[in-house]
Design a protein around this nucleic acid. Sequence first.
RNA 1: GCGCCUGUAGCUCAGCAGGAUAGAGCAUCGGACUUCUAAUCCGAGGGUCGGGGGUUCGACUCCCUCCAGGCGCGCCA
Length: 554
Amino acid sequence: MKEKLSDLIFRAIERAKKSGEIEIEETPEIVLERPKEKIHGDWATNIAMVLASQVKTSPLKVAKSIIDHLDDKQHYLARVEIAGPGFINFYLSNAWLYDVLREIERKGENFGTCNVGQGIRVQVEFVSANPVGPMHIGHGRWAAVGDSLANLLTAAGYDAQREFYINDYGTQMSIFGKSVAARYCELLGREISFPEGGYEGEYVRDIAREVMEEEGGKYLELSEDEREEVFLERAYSQVLEHTERVLSEMGAEFDVWFSERTLHKSGAIRATIDELREKGYVYDKDGAVWLRTTTFGDDKDRVLIRENGEPTYFAADIAYHKNKLERGFDRLINIWGADHHGYVGRMKAAIQALGYPSEVLEVIIGQLVNLLRGGEPVRMSKRTGEMVTLEELLQEVGRDATRFFFLMRGTDSPLDFDIELAKSQSSENPVYYVQYAHARICSIMKFAEDRGFSPVSAEDALLELLAEESELDLIRKLAEFEEIVERAALSRIPHILTKYAQDLAALFHVFYTQCRVISEDLELSRARFVLARCSRQVLRNALALIGVSAPGSM
RNA sequence: GCGCCUGUAGCUCAGCAGGAUAGAGCAUCGGACUUCUAAUCCGAGGGUCGGGGGUUCGACUCCCUCCAGGCGCGCCA
């Protein structure tokens, strides 16, 4: 509709130019927007004000001239007005709104999908938590955002994949293994010094205890290094299992779990460094191997191989991103916590050093989640004992409310998550408001069925009977869905879906209060039934994108 | 010190490819169930959009500056 309208305006301006009323060289882009206030119409354009400053006449005259040359053959427009300082407001005819209902019915669960993605292959990498402890609340935010974003991209015509990068190599892992081994010895009464900076959470002791109960004290015989190795693997597989399970409970199913170790084993890191050296971006200094990231705007050059011969995390990450790109992705979207934002510059530099434009890598920097308990901050470090895990949160709050809550704010904003609040106010959570609207519609349908009501399709219904303000407002909101999906996907902002779902639910509740669906008037009931059914469809589609269920009753 | 993010109603936040009278939820106060679920609806009060400059016909939105808070600036991951 937007395109049709702007085309209509464009041709009106062309005709006005010919008639000599408007004298300009080139017609600027016509910007159409939805006014905040509905009394200003369905669409509005500022084109008259833009042109007026070029032609040096009053915007009102220009607007008048454009309107005079409008040729609305299809009768899309009910009314066109000049308002305020020179806005042209367009009021769409109801006939157009009724078409929206027919379209929703025709497209069903595909209503809202589009093809702005044009099949572009995009990979979304998110969560990627180190496998050294249970998933915490912060990971939940990235799981919700990443998974929903991938849903959105798919809906918008991208070919999207979800990937989890497992940082199963390096110092942190080693310390983790040492920590579990130390707890094991401790449980068996052998004094052993706990590693410096080790993981002190109770879960470490739990893993050690489990091994002890299953296999006794046989690992006491091993050397310290061997023991560390054994416990590292035990703990690793257990944590990974936990991670997969919890993410699955969150509703986030990954296509690929990529292990950092494979990069080390396969020699991919060396190969990547060699490639970069051939390209002339690598040099040796102070016994280490460096990448000249400053060539591509980084603050300083970065170490690839340490003095001790070990590759850095950065070197592995470059090999990883090279691997992704060689798998054929056109775009890589990484979701990182704000504590990694200083890393973006060097990674983009590395992408360019590999010979790709920096735009292929998009990094969404998400601000951190502040965990509160009754207003008091709770530390979320993996190393401190006191911690609330994502698993516990899911158990107490549920997937729907958890996901919805995590998606209610833009990723730029830090999120305060008060556990007490989430638990105690769970029935006041906006997610229930939206779900209730869906359940209400289901209830109407059940009622209709019980009464032997015979519904008809949107094609056969007398939709022009839908003329109440609350009915038309609801249809307008339904029509907006396609634009919302497109914008959310293109701008990578899944959180606007929660706002949309709440708005839509609110308009349905108003409609419900003001208009009885099943009444004595059969034709009116049929038309309203179509509207209710379409509302249910769009609510479902919106909730599906954010991974929240649409219950039939509550 | 430098970089990124944030600052909007009592509270939590939307709005920010510049647009008309700045919105919602919660909280407070007052109404609406013999009728498809009241987990709902209707109404009221509540604001120097952190401060100050600038660009513009027009700024919460863009630019500069200052203030406040968060995060980051490793041969850690």
